[in-house]
C-alpha cells in the first residue's frame, strides 16, 4: 500500500481503476475494465493489446475526449474529464491541416494561445528542426509523405510542451522500415526532452523498441494482463532490434498476446459468420 502511494506520488500520470462501458441495459459492452497503471516522469510506456481490447478508448479517456468513465485518470491531483493542457495528443490518422504550411501547422496551438507571431515561429522552427523537417517548413502537407506528415503532427503536439505526450498508433499506416526509422526519431526526441510518453499500439516490435515498460492488455473486456519492464540499454536506436534481448522480449510479450489475439480473431470470425447468416 505504501509502495503504491510512493509510486503515485512520483507518477506523472496515474490510471486508477478505470472502467468504461458503452451501451445500455442488456447491450452494455465493457471496453475498459478496472485498468490501473502509472507513468513516471520521463518514462516511455506503451499499452499493447489486440484490436478490440479498449486501447483507443483508453487513449480517448486519458486525452479527455471521453469524459464519462469510472475510476480516475490523474495528473497530479487533478482528475481528467476533459482535454487537459498537460496532455498532448498525436492521433493514429493523419491529422495535419492541408490548408496550412508545415510551420503554420506546427505553430497552430501557439496561435490559439495568443503567442506573438515571432515567438511562435521561433518555437515552431525549433520543433520542426527536432523532427528533421527543417527544409520543409514552407511545404504543404500534400507535398509530404505519410511519415513526414506524422512528424508534423508530433511537432505540433510538442510545440505546446505538454507534460505528457500521448500517442495512438501514430505509425500504423507506415511501412516497417519507415516505422523503425521514425521510432529512432521518437526515442531521440523523448530522451532529449525527457518527455513522459504513453504510446498506444498493437505493434510488438515498436513497443519493445521504444518503451521502458509495456502494459499488456487482454482482449475484450480490456484489462491489464501484465506489465513488462524493458531492460534494454539507453540511449537506444533501431539497431536494438537485432539483439537477442530484443528477440527475447518480443517472444515473451507475444506469448502473453497470442491467447488474447486468438480470442479476438475467433470473436470477429463468429461475428462475420452471424452477419453472413443474416444475409
Amino acid at each position: 500500500m505504501a509502495s503504491n502511494m510512493n509510486q503515485s506520488a512520483e507518477a506523472a500520470l496515474v490510471i486508477d481503476d478505470v472502467v468504461k462501458r458503452f451501451g445500455r441495459g442488456q447491450e452494455i459492452v465493457t471496453a475498459v475494465d478496472h485498468v490501473s497503471f502509472t507513468v513516471k516522469q520521463g518514462e516511455f510506456v506503451s499499452v499493447i493489446g489486440p484490436s478490440g481490447c479498449g486501447k483507443s478508448t483508453l487513449f480517448n479517456i486519458i486525452g479527455g475526449l471521453l469524459g464519462d468513465y469510472e475510476g480516475a485518470v490523474k495528473i497530479g491531483d487533478e482528475r481528467i474529464s476533459a482535454p487537459h493542457p498537460a496532455v498532448g495528443m498525436v492521433f493514429q490518422e493523419e491529422s495535419t491541416f492541408p490548408w496550412r504550411t508545415v510551420i503554420d501547422n506546427v505553430a497552430f496551438p501557439l496561435e490559439l494561445q495568443g503567442v506573438a507571431k515571432s515567438e511562435r515561429m521561433d518555437r515552431a522552427h525549433h520543433f520542426i528542426d527536432m523532427v528533421g523537417l527543417a527544409s520543409f517548413e514552407k511545404a504543404f502537407p500534400s507535398q509530404l509523405s505519410g511519415g513526414m506528415k506524422q512528424r508534423v503532427s508530433i511537432a505540433r503536439t510538442l510545440v505546446s510542451q505538454p507534460k505528457i505526450l500521448l500517442m495512438d498508433e501514430p505509425f500504423a499506416a507506415l511501412d516497417e522500415q519507415t516505422r523503425l526509422l521514425l521510432g529512432d526519431k521518437i526515442t531521440q526526441i523523448q530522451q532529449q526532452l525527457n518527455q513522459t510518453t504513453l504510446l498506444i499500439t498493437h505493434n510488438l516490435t515498436e513497443a519493445v523498441q521504444l518503451s521502458d515498460r509495456i502494459v499488456v492488455m487482454t482482449y475484450r473486456p480490456g484489462r491489464v494482463k501484465r506489465i513488462v519492464n524493458i531492460d534494454l540499454p539507453r540511449p537506444r536506436t533501431s539497431d536494438v532490434v537485432g539483439s537477442d534481448a530484443f528477440g527475447h522480449y518480443v517472444a515473451e510479450i507475444w506469448n502473453d498476446l497470442r491467447e488474447e489475439a486468438s480470442r479476438g480473431m475467433a470473436d470477429s470470425e463468429s461475428a462475420a459468420s452471424r452477419r453472413a447468416a443474416h444475409g
Binding site: 493542457p85 495528443m89 492521433f91 490518422e93 491541416f97
Partner: peptide, 25 residues
C-alpha cells in the same frame, strides 16, 4: 474529417475557433 475535430477538441478550442480554424477551411 473527425480526426481534425478531435485535434481541435484536444486543443480545447472554442466553438468559434473550431468553426473558423478547422470546419470552415
Amino acid at each position: 474529417r473527425p480526426v481534425l475535430i478531435n485535434v481541435g477538441r484536444s486543443l480545447k478550442m472554442t466553438p468559434s475557433q473550431m468553426f473558423w480554424k478547422i470546419l470552415f477551411p
